[in-house]
Each structure stands twice: as structure tokens, then as C-alpha cells.
Design a protein around this nucleic acid. Structure first.
Lengths: 198, 198
DNA sequence: ATACTATGTTGACAATGTAAACATTATCTG
DNA sequence: CAGATAATGTTTACATTGTCAACATAGTAT
């Protein structure tokens, strides 16, 4: 089989795209560099011109997914400008919804890369999991003014809400529970009735 | 090097034990059947007489770890016989503590095997994540009597507490947050002050 | 046009999971 | 106790995979 062009043209982007595709179909365990290369129509070592190793491609895919996700979060916050409670609720629901609908994305964002040190750069954390906690902290800070307890270095409300949402999401994604009915209603119930957010 | 005995004698147990050892030192990603076999002093295919494949050995290790964990939970419940609130609090703390102190165990119990169907056998779930939810459900049922809302098929309190605890633990284990001070105090704070358990 | 650099390819190697054929030992049955 | 049978291990072989080194091709800059 002859090749049209020796150079692919946009291999880096394509590796990320096809890589994500592969991941969504076979899962993280069966993910293979050589398969991604084949999907892109290049030799099995071509990816090494763009990524140091397999881990780095996965990291790039993770970043790509994270970016998509964080955009949505920022949108939801913008749409409820000024109303902190609504923002918190919107972010919580968006989070659960996005992860349940994209379980493979969830794994990338939350089950990879946990040994990387957390770095703040350009006012944003390098790890999405840490970043979203900071988003919630900011929302709660706005909600409460600046009346921190002075004791805990952690805004307890943000910690509580995020723990709750993250845990619930994890269970849904991992099939630990199957919530009968609309799981977004469950989020509302838990936050409003149990944690008294609204 | 001559072999003392052709037959190992207790290879199945040893594979699980050495396997867990390997996992704690190199992590799930670098876990290898051949290495475990070598640690046990047998040929690289010997494990196949005891486990269908790599996945099954991992599953066995996971079960072994889960058993250890569930014993502790049952102990904690027994120690607070009759006092549901205390039981819930004890189970919550034990859970966080155990996972933070054994992060590799955490991965086994909660990051593996999520495609397996959940089966109840001998009155116990095959998956620890599902099992602990049921434990909490029972505790809350005892606490509340039988005044279910009738609407939700899920006891909302159990769901809330478990989501909270599980999410908090996940963040600690994954280094999403570093809680300054005693994280067990954070559990108390969140459950008592935010979710009003005690 | 020529040199340099970025991007791809080929070929090789080691580590790994797994299957098949064979070897050794334990256990069962008479 | 002796032979049969099942359980447990070993050797060999093979396909997949990640990665490296050496080489090829094509843009790009001087």
C-alpha cells in the first residue's frame, strides 16, 4: 500500500483524537500506542516524534478532555453570574452529568496521574481534580463573604459539597449503585435537604 | 539452582500474598504475573494452574484485601452494638483511615472490576464497594426505623453519608487535597455539622 | 541550492500474557 | 501396596507491546 504523503500533517492532534476514540472503545487497560498509530495511518514509532512515551500521550488526552470539561464548568458559572447558590448547584449537576455520560473521560481525569505534583500555573491548576475543588472554594467564599473559621485551612462547605458530589459520581460511574429515577434529582435532594446549600 | 521440591505446596496463597506485596511496591500498572511467579520461586506459567489469567489473580488479591477490610468494619459495628449513630461514625472513620493508610488497597477495592455484575451470595455482595453501601443502609434503617419516604428507592441518608465519605477518601488517597490537621476530625465535622448525623 | 531540522519508517530487542505439550508428584481405588 | 488418575509445575513457543537506534524524506531557513 502506497502512502499518499510521507508526512501526516497534523499527527499530534490526530493521535489525541484517535487515542481518545480507542480509549472509549477498549478502555484504559487495553489502550496501545501501536494501535493508535495504526488508526492514524502511521508507523508504530511515529508517535515518539510527538510524545516522549505512552504515558505522555495519555496525559495529553487527559488534558484535552479536562479542557473540554472545564469549559463547560466555566459556562455554567457564567450563566448564573452573581448567584452563588445557583452556581454551586449548576456546577454540581454538570459535574455528575458529564461524568456519567462520559465514564471513560472520568477515568482519565480522576484515575490517572495522581502521583504528579499539583502545580498552579497561569492561575490554574495542572490537575483538573484539584482545579474543580478550587472553583468550589471560590464560589463558597463569595457566598459566605470572608468569615472563615480561622481554624481549618479548608473551607468546610466546599470540602463537604465536593466530597459528596465526587463520591456520588464515582459510585454511579463505577456501577456501585444504580440510582432509580433521575440522579440529578438526587443531587438536588442531597445538597438542599442534607447539606442545606440552597 | 536445584529445586528442593517440585511442588510448591501452597502456591495459591503465596501468589496472593506475594502479589499484594508486589502491588504495594510497584503499583497496579507495573504488576506482572511473571514477577509474582518469580517471587514465589516457580516458573512463569505455574500461576495458570491456580488462576485463569492475570485478571483473576488480581481479583483474588482484591477479595483478600476486601475480606480484611470488611472484618474491621464488622468489628467496629460490634464494638458499638445498639448505638447506630456511633456505628455510623465509627464505620466512616475506619473507612477513611484504612484507605488512607493503604492507598494501594484502595485501588484494588475501588478501581478494579467495575464491569463485573454485582451479585449477592450468602447474604453478602461480591463487590466490597456495594457491600459497604448496604451496611450503611442497614445502619440507617435501624436508626430511623422504617419510615422510608416511599418515593426514593434509596435511603437518602445512607447515600449522602457514603457519597461524602467515599469522595473525601478518594481525594485524600489521590492527593487531590492535603487536609491540614487530622482528617478524621474533618470527617466528624462534616458528618456532625453539615449532615447532622449525631 | 544547500544545509538543517522536523517528522516518519524499518528493524531490533526485551518484557509480558498466554497456550500447548510434557514432567513430576499426590491421591485415589482396588 | 500397586497402578491409575488428577493436580501441580516446567519448557517451549508465539503474539503484543513499549521503546530505542539508524536511516529516509520533506519542509524551512540561510
Amino acid at each position: 500500500m502506497k502512502k499518499e504523503k510521507y508526512h501526516h500533517g497534523f499527527l499530534e492532534k490526530d493521535l489525541i483524537e484517535k487515542g481518545l476514540q480507542l480509549l472509549n472503545s477498549v478502555g484504559l487497560e487495553a489502550f496501545s500506542l501501536r494501535k493508535v498509530a495504526e488508526m492514524c495511518g502511521v508507523s508504530h514509532t511515529a508517535p515518539y516524534r510527538h510524545f516522549k512515551n505512552k504515558e505522555e500521550l495519555i496525559q495529553a488526552i487527559s488534558t484535552s478532555v479536562s479542557d473540554e470539561f472545564t469549559s463547560l464548568i466555566n459556562e455554567a458559572i457564567a450563566e448564573n453570574e452573581g448567584a452563588y447558590r445557583k452556581q454551586i448547584m449548576a456546577v454540581s449537576k454538570l459535574y455528575v452529568k458529564f461524568m456519567v455520560e462520559n465514564p471513560e473521560h472520568f477515568k482519565f481525569i480522576f484515575m490517572t496521574d495522581h502521583n504528579n505534583p499539583i502545580i498552579m500555573k497561569d492561575g490554574k491548576f495542572n490537575r483538573t481534580d484539584r482545579w474543580i475543588v478550587s472553583v468550589l472554594e471560590n464560589l463558597f467564599t463569595g457566598l459566605r463573604g470572608n468569615d472563615g473559621t480561622g481554624e481549618s485551612s479548608w473551607p468546610l462547605d466546599a470540602l463537604t459539597v465536593w466530597s459528596l458530589i465526587h463520591g456520588f459520581t464515582t459510585m454511579l460511574v463505577n456501577n456501585t449503585i444504580k440510582y432509580e429515577g433521575d440522579y440529578l434529582d438526587a443531587v438536588t435532594l442531597m445538597l438542599e435537604e442534607k447539606v442545606k446549600i440552597s
